[in-house]
Computed example of a mutant assay.
Amino acid sequence: MPDRRDTRGRDLERASAPKTLSATKLRWGLLIAALGAILAATVTMTVAGFDTDKVEAHQPGAAPVVRDKEFSSAAQGDCLTWSKPDRSDLVKVNCADKHLFEVAGVIDLSAYPGREFAEGTRHPDSLRMTELRDEHCVTAVQKYLGGRFDPRGKFMVNVMSPSPAGWQHGDRTLRCGVQVAATTASPATTGSLVDSDQSKVNAVGTCLGINQNLPTDPVDCAQPHSVEIVGTVDLSTNFTGGPPSESEQDKFVEAECNRLSGDYLGSPDAIRNKTLTLFFDYLEPASWLAGSHKLDCWLGKGADREGFATVVGSARGEILIDGQAPVPPPNSGRSTPAPLPGAAPLPPQPQPR
């Protein structure tokens, strides 16, 4: 298999000319962005169900602290939410309402072999919690969804643990589940994952932020960003049955994204005049079989270095690319230089017959 980093690098060097990049040109960048989201979420949530610095120590023999009651009674299919940074106001809510975490399974560490989680042991650190997530929660989520979890979709697998106070009191249960994948704090979602479309798509008009030349979470388009969503393509309108091949997807999605971008911008020449590039990805078989059938059409610009240039402003209006206003290329493909002061007038240009 060719090195996609090299392929993508060469393509993005040529991205100053307006064009559409097919799936293979974008996929490596999306993979890096997805890995970044997972790593960031690992830091922000898998350490524990609660902020370990803001929960007081629990005295042996006392009743369990109130803040753990909702967590400790959460079962498969329950949805949880909170508003405080330390998650001390965690509550169970109807999954139809906004929530931050859906429980897919409960893991009892007291049944774990050995004495690692026995009475009197310390709360696992973030590295161990990440290992426990990978050991137990990926399987739990797949089982919860009947094997139909999209590993590159809108949601990611995660784990919550008792607070340090609850742990000291003897609670050894983990909650495996899912949350919206994000590079910072996960946004709320509505509806159970069991009934949700897992396609990783955004509302048309959304702009994705930029960090180290790669897309991040949605931001206001007036802020620095990498790409703008100009349309969403539903591949199930054209393909039925098994997963379509990459070449079949490319042909269909490219045509649809070109049409949708023209509708979004109001002119088929707008992409060219703004020196932007249309990007789209590809649905892998695992995503297709999990029920994800939609892809976003992204409008951005490849950077001179690998990745995306920084855009400010919506492509529907005035934009800056890396701090500069775009200069539309001449229609003829060549520009006529302005005459030097005092030079003789340029000869008249031949007129078309």
Score class of each variant (00 low, 15 high):
1 M>H: 15
2 P>A: 10
2 P>L: 09
3 D>Q: 12
4 R>Q: 15
8 R>T: 10
16 S>R: 13
17 A>P: 08
25 K>A: 15
32 I>S: 10
32 I>L: 14
37 A>D: 09
41 A>W: 01
42 T>C: 12
43 V>P: 00
43 V>L: 15
51 D>S: 04
54 K>V: 08
57 A>E: 10
64 P>F: 11
70 E>N: 11
74 A>V: 04
75 A>W: 03
83 S>A: 14
85 P>F: 09
90 L>C: 04
90 L>Y: 05
90 L>F: 06
95 C>P: 11
98 K>H: 09
109 L>C: 00
111 A>Q: 13
113 P>D: 04
116 E>V: 06
116 E>H: 03
117 F>K: 02
121 T>V: 01
129 M>E: 02
129 M>F: 06
135 E>W: 06
154 K>H: 13
159 V>G: 02
160 M>V: 07
167 W>R: 02
167 W>C: 03
168 Q>C: 12
173 T>C: 09
176 C>L: 04
181 A>P: 05
187 P>F: 03
194 V>N: 06
195 D>R: 14
201 V>M: 08
211 N>D: 10
212 Q>V: 07
218 P>Q: 02
222 A>T: 13
222 A>P: 12
224 P>L: 02
229 I>M: 04
231 G>M: 04
233 V>H: 03
234 D>T: 01
235 L>V: 04
235 L>R: 01
241 G>L: 08
247 S>M: 13
253 V>H: 02
265 L>N: 04
270 A>L: 08
271 I>E: 02
281 D>A: 10
282 Y>F: 13
288 W>H: 07
300 G>T: 06
302 G>T: 11
302 G>P: 05
306 E>I: 10
316 R>C: 03
317 G>I: 08
322 D>S: 08
332 S>N: 10
334 R>E: 09
344 A>G: 05
345 P>T: 00
346 L>R: 15
348 P>T: 09
